[in-house]
């Protein structure tokens, strides 16, 4: 299924993707189950990071629970010939966590998506206004999430 991974790598991902334990040697159980050393588990995780199979290894934050409740999907209607240029400018804003170009669809004119997470809607609006200023794109909307049905992250 995952041609870039060997069997052990895949097992390591599956054994860590729901979270490693909060104990002094969190990789010890995995190592003993796989019959390899803890250091090998770690070396393989690092290797997968270098190969961009893993984007990062770290904490996923329950951002709503700590007060980051304004989560705006800012959507932009950008002329096709400007998407490259505008996407690059948007990605340069530190407040933007994700930026994608996606197709338009019937009833949906917006082709660039930029996520902004903050403590208040005003913050998000202020960031969007600065992006609009920097790019000259005036046709945009902020879609806030008000309920989370699921957030597991990508899993194998």
């Amino acid at each position: 299924m995952a041609e870039n991974l060997d069997d052990i790598d895949e097992k390591i991902i599956k054994m860590t993707q729901n979270g490693i334990p909060l104990k002094k040697s969190p990789f010890a159980d995995i190592a003993s189950k796989l019959g390899i050393s803890e250091q090998e588990v770690i070396d393989r995780l690092k290797k997968m990071q270098e190969k961009d199979i893993i984007r990062r290894f770290g904490a996923s934050i329950g951002h709503r629970d700590i007060g980051i409740v304004a989560n705006a999907m800012c959507v932009w209607n950008v002329p096709d010939e400007r998407t490259e240029e505008v996407g690059t400018i948007m990605a340069g804003f530190s407040e933007v966590t994700h930026c994608y170009e996606r197709p338009r669809a019937p009833g949906w004119d917006y082709n660039l998506f930029a996520m902004v997470h903050s403590y208040t809607k005003e913050d998000c609006e202020e960031v969007a206004a600065r992006i609009s200023e920097a790019t000259g794109i005036k046709d945009y909307k902020l879609l806030y999430s008000d309920r989370e049905f699921k957030k597991t992250g990508v899993r194998l």
Partner: peptide
């Protein structure tokens, strides 16, 4: 973790990277 500030500590997987 109990309170929900940390969901988990683990790998953030690149779906394209794993094919």
């Amino acid at each position: 973790h109990d309170e929900g500030a940390v969901r988990k500590i683990g790998p953030i997987i690149n779906r394209r990277g794993v094919g």
